[in-house]
Simulated assay, not measured.
Amino acid sequence: MEIVGFVAAFLTTAAFLPQVYQTWKTKDVSSLSMPMLSMFFVGIVLWLIYGISIDSPSMIAANSITVVSAFMLVYFKLKYAKR
């Protein structure tokens, strides 16, 4: 089952990375919702904590990368938002 977890982890994490890259490249954050980003970030942190607590390498790997990616989007949203 851990192989299934790693495949799922790869797909869900990889699917998120183009958004981070596009936002970094264009600096356009107008379509990003801060409430969604905040809830997503907290949710991913909780999934990471859960993955650590059950010692699941696939959950730890995927959520560690996604925490960083989500944090970057929150940072971009705060930095590039029109004030």
Rank of each mutant, 00 (worst) to 15 (best):
L11D: 02
T26L: 13
S56A: 09
A15K: 11
E2P: 01
F10W: 02
V42I: 11
A9E: 03
A70G: 03
S33W: 13
A14T: 03
Q19L: 13
G51D: 10
K25W: 04
I54T: 01
A9Y: 00
P18K: 15
I52H: 10
I44Y: 03
Y80C: 12
P35T: 02
S53L: 08
V67L: 10
L37E: 00
S30A: 07
I3K: 05
D28K: 01
S58N: 04
K82R: 15
S58A: 14
K77G: 03
P35L: 03
S31V: 14
I54Y: 04
V20F: 15
D28R: 01
L11M: 11
I54F: 12
A61I: 13
S56Y: 09
I44W: 05
L48E: 11
A14Q: 06
G5L: 04
N63C: 09
P18D: 13
E2W: 00
Y21V: 14
F76M: 09
S38K: 00
F76W: 10
G5T: 04
S56Q: 05
I65G: 07
K27W: 08
L11G: 02
K79E: 07
T23P: 15
A9M: 06
I52V: 10
I60F: 07
A8E: 08
K79W: 00
S33Y: 13
V29G: 08
Y80M: 11
I65Y: 07
L11R: 06
A81D: 09
S58W: 00
V67K: 09
M39A: 08
D28W: 03
R83D: 08
V42H: 01
D28A: 02
F41R: 00
L32N: 10
Y50F: 14
L11F: 11
S33E: 02
Y21N: 13
Y75T: 06
I65A: 15
S31G: 12
V67R: 04
S69C: 12
G43K: 01
G43N: 04
L32V: 04
I49G: 04
Y50W: 11
S33L: 06
M36I: 03
A62I: 06
A14Y: 09
V67Y: 11
V67E: 05
A15W: 06
N63Y: 07
A14F: 11
F10N: 04
K82G: 11
I44P: 00
I60K: 15
F40E: 07
V7I: 13
F10Q: 05
S69G: 11
M59K: 02
D55N: 12
L73Y: 03
A81Q: 14
A62H: 02
S38D: 03
P57Y: 05
P35H: 04
V74C: 14
P57W: 06
S56G: 09
A62V: 11
A61K: 10
Y50E: 13
I49A: 09
V7R: 03
A81P: 05
P57F: 07
S53Y: 12
I52E: 07
D55C: 11
T66A: 00
P57H: 01
I54N: 00
S33A: 08
S38W: 11
Y50N: 12
A61T: 08
V67Q: 01
G5I: 03
F76E: 06
V74R: 00
P35D: 04
P18M: 14
S53F: 09
S30H: 07
M34Y: 03
V20W: 10
S33F: 09
Y21K: 15
Y80P: 09
F41P: 00
P18L: 15
P35W: 06
S53N: 07
I52M: 13
